[in-house]
Nucleic acid binder design. Structure first.
Lengths: 236, 236
DNA sequence: CGTTATGTTGACCTCCTTCAAAGGCTGTGG
DNA sequence: CCACAGCCTTTGAAGGAGGTCAACATAACG
């Protein structure tokens, strides 16, 4: 029986002591038995593309660490539109606003198939108090959120649509763990929501990039690019 | 003798136990003598408009709390331009990246005459460990930074230049402690850097707002506005 | 195999940038 | 006190970038 997962594959109770990415996620440096002794359910989840983890405004009881994949944080705007304010990958922590008692500030949706750990708030709060390593790691994650947000302002919301798109592509490359391999690009609609432009403009720019040989792709699968030329475009 | 302040008025060693804004800045809830017992210099500073508090990339040894005034955080872009990524006011904490050992990520510059407390890193680190109240306050400040950054993405980097300007004006109103009174508006250049538009466009929009009676102002001093109409424009 | 989402392209028009010039305010020195 | 320089703001004209609306193509899907 899957615990409150509609559509979501529950892989099992997380066994953090043997987690392969443990050393770069939140609990790096913890003694092996500390987590097990908490007796609180840290669930290991696999979520497919387009799956929503949580919605903006929902009461928050968990934070999530990303083991693999890519998650988007989306904000619904008062005038009906929506804007993606963050892209998060392996090692990132999402839903941290829960730690200060807030409801979720965004809708979190899977962009590339993801493995996640869902951690109850109490676990994080407890470890924050008892483990200096976790406490430091938590501060670093918080700072990382700020840095990511700043990057969205300076890189994806500044300059011409073309250079913003170039920066987005390089950012996506960066976020891939396995370098130089294929991965699924965001839809044109998502690109628009990421860059603050319309779907049509996103499409036009991508089509133009493809024609100019700046990026190779098949359907929506990335298959290589000219990083030098993209970098040049990024600094217009 | 003023301690390493070029141009900056040193008001005195901070006496936190009698600080009038103490209850909404970082050290709310601390026993009165805790801070004095640290024997570390928390300086109380007054900084005039345009004064730089620190520069992007500098080694960071202090965080600052804002007692009054308005501070802008600016990022220098690789292509020579610059973008303002945050506006911070009373109760806000700036330079938090210092806590994780980073150099300052922005240049912090005074936009409206400010009273500040400059707090050595060690003081904050110490209190973070020893006082649960400060620890919670710190988390809240970190989350606030994230929220502010998100607001810059969704409100000041999304939609037409006109609606973004309307949102900026409402945001500036919000940030004033003394409501319905006069205050100095940012220069057109700063408005441009805040909204990701050119100085000329910022000027045109403000001139048009003035003509339409949406804002009243004398030189660069705000003197009232039509909040309803601005709010309507903000949601275009 | 139709149906529906998603991507592409075209035409047109608006908004914003760019470059240029003029006006206004401030401070300084005569 | 006035003249002048320097800075910021305003405004104009022209071109370009992006939005809008619509048609069409292509891929995804039951």
């Amino acid at each position: 029986m899957k615990p409150n997962c509609t559509n979501l594959e529950w892989v099992g109770r997380a066994r953090c002591s043997v987690c392969d990415v443990r050393n770069f996620v939140l609990f790096a440096g913890l003694p092996a038995n500390t987590l097990d002794s908490l007796l609180l359910p840290i669930d290991n989840l696999h979520a497919p593309q387009h799956h929503p983890l949580y919605g903006q405004g929902e009461a928050a009881a968990h934070v999530y660490t990303i083991r693999s994949g890519l998650i988007k944080l989306r904000v619904d705007l008062p005038n009906g539109g929506q804007r993606i304010v963050r892209l998060l990958g392996p090692g990132d922590l999402i839903g941290m606003e829960a730690l200060v008692g807030d409801p979720y500030h965004h809708s979190a949706i899977v962009m590339q198939d993801a493995d996640l750990c869902r951690i109850p708030l109490e676990v994080v709060r407890k470890l924050d108090q008892t483990s200096p390593e976790v406490h430091r790691a938590l501060q670093q994650r918080w700072q990382r959120s700020v840095d990511q947000a700043d990057l969205f302002i300076t890189s994806l919301s500044t300059g011409s649509a073309e250079s913003r798109m170039a920066r987005l592509l390089m950012m996506l490359l960066q976020s891939q763990t396995t370098i130089h391999t294929e991965f699924s690009l965001p839809s044109r609609e998502d690109m628009g929501a990421l860059l603050g432009i319309t779907t049509e403009t996103a499409s036009r720019i991508m089509a133009e990039f493809k024609r100019r040989g700046l990026v190779q792709m098949d359907r929506s699968i990335y298959m290589g690019c000219d990083q030098d030329q993209l970098a040049a475009l990024a600094e217009s």
